[in-house]
Design a protein around this nucleic acid. Sequence first.
DNA 1: ACAGGAAAAGAACGATCGTGCTATAACTGA
DNA 2: TCAGTTATAGCACGATCGTTCTTTTCCTGT
Lengths: 194, 194
Amino acid sequence: MSKGDETRHAILTEATAVAAKVGLTGMTIGQLAAHTGMSKSGLYAHFASKEALQLEILRHTRERFVDQVVRPALQTPRGIARLRVLFDAWVTWSESMEEGGCLFVAASSELDDQPGPVRDALVRDERDWLEMIATVAGTAVSEGELRDDLDLEQFAYEVHALTLAHQHASRLLRDPKALDRVHRAFDSLLTHSA
Amino acid sequence: MSKGDETRHAILTEATAVAAKVGLTGMTIGQLAAHTGMSKSGLYAHFASKEALQLEILRHTRERFVDQVVRPALQTPRGIARLRVLFDAWVTWSESMEEGGCLFVAASSELDDQPGPVRDALVRDERDWLEMIATVAGTAVSEGELRDDLDLEQFAYEVHALTLAHQHASRLLRDPKALDRVHRAFDSLLTHSA
DNA sequence: ACAGGAAAAGAACGATCGTGCTATAACTGA
DNA sequence: TCAGTTATAGCACGATCGTTCTTTTCCTGT
């Protein structure tokens, strides 16, 4: 990897953290330059515009998300076991961020009424994520571990609801019981879907 | 109501809408002045600082929330009936916003890692809201409509999860089935808590 | 209707925004 | 090592940020 690609990658890593904390819009080039110890123009030279940077941040986050959440699940046997790993990996992913939690969650409410390519990209990512949950739940159905009349999309919707609730309880309310809460809710959802 | 109070109120109403769309931080005085047709300084004279304005926006929203969501519920007989009205009123409240949806939901992920008095006020509001759900669910328990070993806080957590999910499905994903989804999830939650 | 006070506008402040252009510094392949 | 490329910094731009101060306009009580 050349020097350019290296710093570009470092910028994106730092930018992802900043964006998770203050939002994709709230994040500024100057702020980011200060965080990385670069000059504003030196940093900016790596991206065509702020919007391009935001899109790159989403792409960078998506790659790490696949690595840390999706892949562990796909390496687990089909069925409820895989579903549990997927969910637990998400919780771990969310908890692993020093500040701001999961960028997708933060960006979701930030961009929900701000049309443009960044919002469009986020919507695609979120649809993919919901589809992934539904698909994995489907393996549990075909393994006979969840009831076969289960509405997979509705199930994914409710699992996703728990991820949003966890970020809220953990990040905003700083509820020490947040982890316990989200696991109990997920278990009860599994029970009622069996 | 004097002239000053009148415009102040009008500003807050407009500011609430703007803040729901672009965030409490993303909102700017200039933007707000343009929306209200006032000069920046004329508008600003009504508030001590931007932070004070943000706090006033939260207070203003809380008042309307009590009127439109809490009050209808408290005017309904105790028990599941009241719980349903509370939830339905929230959904109506959220849907009634032209843009941005429920400000509390939007602010929750915006401020979750931004310490200060605004975050503190929001945390209080969210705690109150969760407590309200738990309390109303408690009336359904004491009426014998929900099982008496129900964990009220956990129940409130899961109901709240659905409100977050609804805003996501409705505002970000523009899912036409969003309303159906949230109602089905709520019904199933009630069923499993009976 | 007029005086006194409240409300709004005007203008300006230093700071920072996103974004260019130009020059210097650092890396890389021959 | 040296040329040529690539990466970074410096500097400046118009715009807008939150905020203050002064002036003008409007409202209100008598």
